[in-house]
Design a protein around this nucleic acid. Structure first.
Lengths: 148, 148
DNA sequence: CTTGCGGATTAGACTCATTCTAATTGAGTT
DNA sequence: AACTCAATTAGAATGAGTCTAATCCGCAAG
């Protein structure tokens, strides 16, 4: 179910960690592997349970720590909907999130540069934004179960 | 500090409540008054404290109930940022939210119809969205302290 | 070697927004 | 005056996330 990291992904992880003064540890590799294996925006608990299959001693606190570290060095994004549990997403390309009202599934929606630009343009002078979050809520005709 | 509802706002409240089979109660009037008095996107706790000045016996559970009811009949919107406490906003026009990283203040950003349309247009076929949430995070040159 | 250092990991306690529960109130009826 | 049914209430319960203090582990210095 959970494959090992490809050489490429391993380098990606290592580079990002080292660049922000963090170490590569077995726990971090395991958590990162889980994130890449199934890109369905898992919650911390889901990551925890999946990672335990591969590293049974892993603790929940460590999963929180790893994910926080990854966010800190730009390896993954947090995804929040209302006040539900935070989900995690290794897709780094700019994208919005679509949440299916029925299934709860989260899908990535590609965000073309011109839409980004038009969004930025609605900010009145004096407002300077680093992060823009866009989330849709609705229903999706099931097609591919995951989100990319 | 907290003025009474204008006749107009009172009718607005009454109409929305009755239309969805709810009753007008003193508690609901008090909470709605608080929301309209200062449009700074208060948290439940802030609403609670402000409303207590006017109705000391009011309970926190009731504030939660009232706000939930208001959301249900379209009188107010919930505003969430990451996993912080939910805030409430009586601005019904389509708008985005800008959250100041430093002060935590939330400002409303008007959302022109063509931007809404271009956003809707990025959804692949099969995706049908009712609600779009857009939130900016950044720094705002203080100007008017409230949002609206 | 083996000792010491500092970051990473861990279990479990803690926080705090929100929800739930069960009892009470109160307005409008019969 | 008794009924009814939603709204209100206080306090308990939930649960995601954070904090704490102890342990672990890789690595560099002696």
């Amino acid at each position: 179910m959970i494959r090992n990291l490809t050489e490429h992904d391993k380098e990606h992880l290592q580079e990002a960690l080292v660049k922000s003064g963090q170490k590569v540890t077995p726990q971090r590799e395991a958590v990162f592997t889980v994130l890449l294996a199934e890109r369905d925006h898992p919650t911390v608990d889901e990551v925890f349970n999946r990672a335990r299959e591969v590293m049974p001693g892993l603790s929940l606190a460590t999963v929180y720590n790893c994910l926080e570290t990854f966010v800190g060095c730009g390896l993954v994004r947090q995804v929040n909907h209302e006040r539900e549990s935070t989900r995690y997403c290794p897709n780094l390309a700019p994208h919005a999130h679509f949440r299916d009202k029925e299934t709860g599934q989260v899908h990535d929606i590609e965000l073309p540069p011109d839409v980004m630009k038009s969004l930025r343009s609605i900010l009145p002078p004096g407002f300077d934004s680093e992060v823009i979050e866009i989330s849709f809520l609705g229903r999706a005709q099931a097609k591919d179960s995951h989100s990319n």
